[in-house]
Design a protein around this nucleic acid. Structure first.
Length: 506
RNA sequence: CGGGGCGUGGCGCAGCCUGGUAGCGCACCUGCUUUGGGAGCAGGGAGUCGGAGGUUCAAAUCCUCUCGCCCCGACCA
């Protein structure tokens, strides 16, 4: 009888996915809850991951001509009221600042004083205040296109929060652009969607489905919303990035006008697009295993940890010298134009530290003891392989190969995620099969079930709503490469002209 | 915001029903022995039981209110 292998995370994904996620976040030391309702503290291990994502994305944005700027955290109430659909969408989840001073009360406590004449809304997104700036910045077609991005925090007073996936405050970037023509604005919308898809697939190793949102899932105020949709290991979908074509809605709301080459006054066409710290939750749920987080090398907080192993203090001196020297050498190597980040863990806490790094998801663990040094070699473990599967390698070869090894891990993670996505993506015809697919066998404690289902939809809000009502399944997107085979709506049986992506979602 | 569950050292939990003044495992600190897969022994530090109020001689335990977290739903990146 083989003894059951102990996992670093309890429970396993299979046993309780949601609890597994909480534990994976906690034990990776990426973030923790704060005393503030619904808000998180992002710890260094999580924040460096975010910083790496920021650097990569920022480069990609700038390559397309986007410039960074910064706009106020506070939005005058009146600004938010300008676009009707926008108000409708965000009004229910805004934090509002109503006072500008604190005073001591009789009990010695502090109470708000000095009411503001116009309350300020903590930005849930910045279309309105940036639109106001744009209206001042733009007067001629020569000022267009205007391509602006800001890295910022936003606040949305969510009813139900989940660390990284949905918190009241989160970090993100929001890009805002203004264009002279509809075509150009739409091109920009698609361009940014493609950048997000590239970020997800090439850097985060998360395969995506690109698509258009239905009327009911659209961003409040947008004409069209596009998104990248990813699948998590519990077979739920995660919207990982959005790009909106805003038409002239916000231009009209904020009076963003320009004089055209033909000397006519016209409204600009705008776009907005964003990704957030939610991506970190996506990485965890895409790649993590029952031993914790697995970080894709291209954005990993650190790439490799060197773990010295020694008996005597004599050994320790020798091992440490070897380790420090190797560390220095590797630190100066580049992995995709970024320096390799090295950790050296010389804490004297035995095998436990190896497990800590497994839980943190560092791509490479390298053990170095007297025996290795005698052979001038190192002992390597990859996080994408079983934790006991380790290989010995000559020290110099390791230094030479590390970049390739990291790439192998990166590719391997992507391939694994892609297989998972493909295995759990199905085309379903017929209501009965559709309902069966999305209904768990155990209703009290639903097991992991469902997946991505490409099915026919008649295009009406009623059917979309009914399916949501019955199964909590929504249309994640209408795929951009939608095949246009004819069929019947899985809900009402009326004719449909193409399949859309259905899934349960975060 | 509706339904359910839960809050006890850093983490995971027992104790609560049948009130008597807090315990276990891991982590942490010190020492010795160890060290290639979550080390052993000995000693030690740390909680007043989410918060407030009430009942009582006495409350982690009973009652009321409140805050927070988790799950399901509605809402959402």
């Amino acid at each position: 009888m083989e003894k059951e292998e102990k996992t670093a995370i309890t429970p396993t994904r299979e046993e309780d996915y949601s609890e597994w996620y909480q534990q994976a976040v906690k034990l990776s030391d990426m973030a923790e809850r704060s005393p503030v309702r619904g808000c998180m503290v992002i710890k260094p291990w999580g924040y460096s991951l975010w910083e790496n994502i920021v650097h990569e994305l920022d480069d990609m944005f700038k390559d397309t001509g986007v410039k960074n700027a910064y706009f106020p955290l506070f939005i005058p109430l009146g600004f938010l009221e300008k676009e009707a659909a926008h108000v409708e969408g965000f009004a229910k989840e805004c934090a509002v600042v109503t006072h500008h001073r604190l005073e001591k009360n009789d009990g010695g406590g502090l109470v708000p004083a000095g009411p503001l004449t116009e309350p300020l809304v903590v930005r849930p997104t910045s279309e309105t205040i940036i639109g106001d700036a744009f209206s001042n910045w733009i007067s001629s077609y020569r000022d267009l296109p205007l391509l602006i991005n800001q890295w910022a925090n936003v606040v949305r007073w969510e009813m139900r929060t989940r660390i990284f996936l949905r918190t009241s405050e989160f970090l993100w970037q929001e890009g805002h652009t203004a264009h002279a023509t509809e075509t150009e604005a739409m091109e920009r919308t698609k361009l940014m969607l493609n950048i997000y898809a590239r970020l997800a697939e090439e850097y985060l190793a998360m395969p995506v489905t690109k698509g258009r949102k239905t009327e009911s899932e659209k961003f409040p105020g947008a004409v069209e919303t596009f998104s990248i949709e990813t699948i998590m290991q519990d077979k739920k979908g995660l919207q990982a990035g959005t790009s909106h074509f805003l038409g002239q809605n916000f231009a009209k709301a904020s009076e963003i006008k320009f004089q055209s080459f033909e000397e006519k006054e016209e409204y600009v066409w705008t776009t907005s697009w964003g990704v957030s710290t939610r991506l970190i939750g996506g990485i965890i749920m895409t790649h993590g295993d029952d031993n914790g987080v697995i970080l894709p090398p291209r954005v990993a907080s650190s790439h490799v940890v060197l773990i010295p192993i020694y008996r005597s203090s004599d050994d320790k001196a020798k091992v440490m010298e070897f380790v420090e020297k190797l560390g220095l050498e590797i630190k100066n190597l580049f992995y995709h134009h970024r320096k390799i980040r090295v950790e050296i863990d010389d804490r004297d806490i035995g095998g436990a530290k190896g497990w800590e790094w497994i839980k943190k998801g560092i791509p490479l663990r390298v053990e170095i003891g007297p025996r290795d040094i005698a052979k001038d070699s190192v002992y390597i473990a990859r996080r994408d392989k079983p934790h006991r599967e380790k290989i010995s390698m000559k020290r110099d070869q390791f230094a030479k190969e590390i970049v390739n090894i990291l790439d192998e891990i990166q590719n391997n993670l992507y391939e694994k995620a892609l297989s998972f996505k493909e295995e759990n993506t199905v085309s379903i015809d017929g209501g009965a099969r559709f309902y069966e697919f999305f209904t768990p066998l155990n209703k009290d404690k639903p097991e992991i079930h469902g997946g991505f289902a490409f099915s026919h939809w008649c295009g009406t809000n009623e059917c979309e709503a009914k399916i949501k009502e019955d199964l909590s399944v929504t249309i994640r997107c209408i795929p951009l490469n939608q095949n246009t085979d004819k069929g019947k709506c899985v809900c009402c049986g009326r004719p449909s002209s193409g399949r859309v992506l259905f899934a349960k979602a975060y």
